[in-house]
Amino acid sequence: MIQKFSFSIQNRNNITSLSIYLFLIVFTVILIYPFIWMALSSLKSSREIFLSPFSFPKKLRISNYFEAWKRCSFGVALRNSVLVSAGSVLPIVFFSSLAAYPIARMKFSGRVFILIFLIIGHMIPLQVVMIPLAIELKNLHLMNTLLGLILPLIAKGIPLTLIVLVGFFQDIPLEIEDAAKIDGCSEFGIFWKIILPLSKPALSATLIFQIMFTWNEFLLPLVVIRRRAVMTIPLAVQAFTGQDFVEWEYRFAALTLAIIPIVVAYFLFQRQFVRGLTFGALKE
């Protein structure tokens, strides 16, 4: 009796764990296989891509990548993407931390109003203001320039970064500040010498998030940029792969090239990525 009972439990456990594993394998395949297919196809010839979609390439055609790099002007796009991300992320984090400091730690009139304005600013996307923004940028002669991408990206990044930093700054004990005040430290001194160094984990997490968001932005360049010479990677690759006359192997190679930098960055900074999410990048 006892034996039979324990057997049935074990049996049930086996079936559950088997189905759990099956479920996880299916999930992993659906998640990862498209990338494997893309990477393998990028090393094949057009004929192979169509005739044997699942197979490993007969000969690794690394030259596909050189050709795609050249024809897509990938080097220029890479440079533009780096400039745009760097040029927008640093101001985003600096301005946000400046603004987060009084919101988190001072009492002043209009504080609640500003917080609500920020949250709504975070919810309302760029595309609902796209038309006046395009006219505004045109009047400022910023269409087809990298600065025309950077300024709107700064505005786009500030609300979320600010909300996360406010949450973090609030958790720093006020006593630290009082001690500094007695020593005659100015408000900016407290911010610069005490609050910022203590907030390094939050700053690095928001920094990495914003690098990703600015790097991946597609709609804004689509509106602002028409010239090849100022395109960022997503737009340049979309423009290249969208042409009907381009051979498939080069399209696959260009798309793989577009994904490589962000994947490398992800593996290097994986801890910050996951931490940034659990920090309340989403919660607040």
């Binding site: 400046l98 603004a99 919101i103 920020l118 203001v129 505005a155």
Partner: peptide, 20 residues
């Protein structure tokens, strides 16, 4: 402290909404 962030947000978010 708030000026730079709010200035950009007003110029690039709020102002275009009103214009819209």
């Amino acid at each position: 402290f708030l000026l730079p962030a709010l200035g950009i947000l007003v110029g690039i978010n709020l102002f275009p909404i009103i214009w819209n």
